[in-house]
Write a protein that binds this DNA or RNA. Structure first.
Lengths: 151, 151
DNA sequence: TTGGGTGCAAATCTTTTGCAGGTGT
DNA sequence: ACACCTGCAAAAGATTTGCACCCAA
């Protein structure tokens, strides 16, 4: 079994993640951390994020249509992604654990973890849209409609 | 607004998805459908899956560490992925709608959809593992342990 | 006829990996 | 000294896209 050694880069990556709450991508962390370590490589960032995630020190979040994001908060909680501004935010007021237990009690296999991601329009974008609509009457979040054959 | 035209390829892709329950990747569909359309290209499969998903005729499923999968069943239901065999299966006995409403009622933005994915060991792999363990005493699903510094 | 759809291949984006040299223990 | 870790760059994997031709409406 491989023994883990200390590395300044790994510590910096971990700390960077602890000090921000925007659920950054590997590249966002890379850009930020390069201020402190100008020579760090993106590969190192990926390697350490993957390692920290395997160790359970951070969380990797995979969602539809976007690059993986990382979260320094490992307490069980859910996430929301805004399809307007792309922001990912915490949704920690829903009891996911109860939900997970409910599933586990009726499932024959073993449930180890559960990912819950909500998609929609975030409070800020919704507010902006409502202000606009009050003026123009148009709804810029309306999904495009197509003329559709059966398939 | 673009008008949609019928295409045999799109119909075949849609039907292929309706007739299977293994939550295939784009490539799996491509391989299967090539029996009927030897000249179809992977790009066409991707384009149509994306289109059908936008139209709400099928569902795209994004999960950790695997290629996107597609589901012909658009009724709200959750999924489970086995980390041993990689199979993705339905978990439709949990009331996700209630869960989604619970979240929506306490959230200031608009929740449009919700993805719930469970990860663990599927019933079949669990059974096999238990049979093996009864003989050898070893647990092949034990996660590797590392000696860990603070970070 | 016209504009959407297709096949093909190249491009893009994200993430992983091989290698040679650096560093923690 | 011995692994582990890093930077660099190339590779890999998944998905998208430009283009010329084809086909449904």
């Amino acid at each position: 079994m491989a023994a883990l050694k200390y590395s300044r880069q790994r510590e910096a990556i971990y700390n960077n993640l602890q000090h921000r709450k925007d659920h950054p991508t590997a590249d966002m962390i890379f850009v930020d951390i390069r201020k402190e370590f100008p020579n760090i490589s993106l590969g190192t960032v990926y390697r350490n994020l993957s390692l920290l995630s395997d160790l359970g020190k951070i969380q990797k979040l995979t969602a539809d249509g976007i690059a993986d994001r990382f979260d320094g908060n490992i307490l069980p909680h859910d996430h929301f992604i805004c399809r307007e501004c792309g922001a990912m935010m915490d949704m920690d007021f829903v009891d996911t654990e109860r939900f997970k237990e409910e599933a586990a009690s009726r499932f024959d296999g073993t449930i180890e973890r559960c990912s819950v991601i909500f998609y929609g329009i975030c409070p800020e974008c919704k507010r902006k849209a409502e202000a606009e609509r009050a003026q123009s009457g148009a709804n810029r979040f309306a999904k495009p409609v197509k003329i559709t054959p059966t398939v």
